[in-house]
């Protein structure tokens, strides 16, 4: 049964990569391959926790993947492994044939998290320019202006983070993640700390930004609605040890807008995935 499921996941990954490749025409360089990835954390006194257990997943170039699952199911750990912030205990992760650490050295990753992580002493402009400075590259002034405009903050170029609202800070954070034109965009609950209304608007915003230049993206979120709205495929992870319980392709047409959320197709997918999420939560042993 388990191996069947993995075959299905592989197959789906393959199919959808084919589709995306046909649409995008190139981009085969951004493939992310996760093979038998596991993560075991050693606690004190010889205790261990299996955070992620045997995840196989192929992500096509230019594809948007959303990882959902109950709290503590290892989705953030999986994301951190792709970002090179954690090392898998078993298995391997390849991004365009390279390990995450090799990608890091070439500045191929962009990351935005729930905590915006902006430098409080830098203006919005300088925060977006920071990746250039960190990489020792000359700051591409046009690119920084373009990104500020893209996230709709051209008027706030000189504002310090403390002068910006929560949503604005997250927009700067996403613009910063995009600064070096990363091959892979890694988003860990970027809007998790925002209120429901702002969050919905930000999702719409992110969808628009992403559609302008589809970048291979992995998003971790608690919100099924967010996942369905943004992703090409939604991966549902079961609780500890985390494994992929379901991979659902989202066939909603792009570009999507707030109206998309009103369609029957959207509602059906939402209902299906919510039910599946409830099921994995319920079947999990009490913690």
């Amino acid at each position: 049964m388990m191996s069947n499921l993995h075959d299905v996941i592989r197959l789906e990954g393959f199919l959808s990569r084919q589709e995306v490749c046909m649409e995008a025409g190139n981009q085969s360089t951004s493939d992310i391959v996760l093979e038998g990835v596991r993560k075991r954390f050693e606690l004190a006194k010889g205790q261990v926790i299996d955070a992620v257990e045997h995840v196989d997943l192929n992500i096509a170039g230019g594809e948007f993947i959303a990882l959902i699952g109950p709290s503590g199911c290892g989705k953030s750990t999986l994301l951190r492994m792709v970002a090179g912030l954690e090392t898998p205990s078993h298995g391997q992760i390849k991004i365009a044939g390279q390990t995450p650490n090799e990608c890091i050295k070439q500045q191929k990753l962009g990351i935005a998290m729930q905590e915006h992580g902006l430098m409080p002493w830098l203006s919005a402009w300088d925060n977006i320019a920071l990746p250039f400075r960190l990489a020792g590259l000359p700051v591409d002034i046009d690119r920084v202006h373009e990104l500020l405009a893209l996230v709709g903050l051209d008027e706030f170029a000189n504002a310090l983070p403390k002068q910006l609202s929560g949503g604005m800070k997250q927009r700067v954070s996403i613009a910063r993640a995009l600064a070096l034109e990363p091959q892979v965009l890694i988003l860990d609950e970027p809007f998790g700390a925002l209120d429901a209304v702002t969050r919905r608007l930000m999702n719409n915003e992110l969808q628009r930004i992403w559609s302008r230049k589809p970048t291979t993206t992995i998003l971790v979120t608690h919100s099924v609605e967010e996942a369905v709205f943004l992703a090409d495929r939604v991966c549902l992870m079961s609780p500890r040890p985390g494994r992929l319980a379901l991979v659902e392709p989202i066939t909603l047409e792009r570009p999507r807008s707030l109206e998309t959320m009103q369609t029957a197709e959207f509602r059906n997918l939402l209902a299906k995935l919510t039910a599946a999420l409830d099921e994995v939560c319920m079947s999990a042993p009490a913690q």
Binding site: A83, L85, I104, K105, I111, H116, G117, R133, L134
Partner: peptide, 20 residues
Amino acid sequence: VHDDVIRTYGVTRWRALCFI
């Protein structure tokens, strides 16, 4: 989260010190 920025951008020790 700033440490994560330092690591995901593969920042050298010297630049991490100066900029972050």
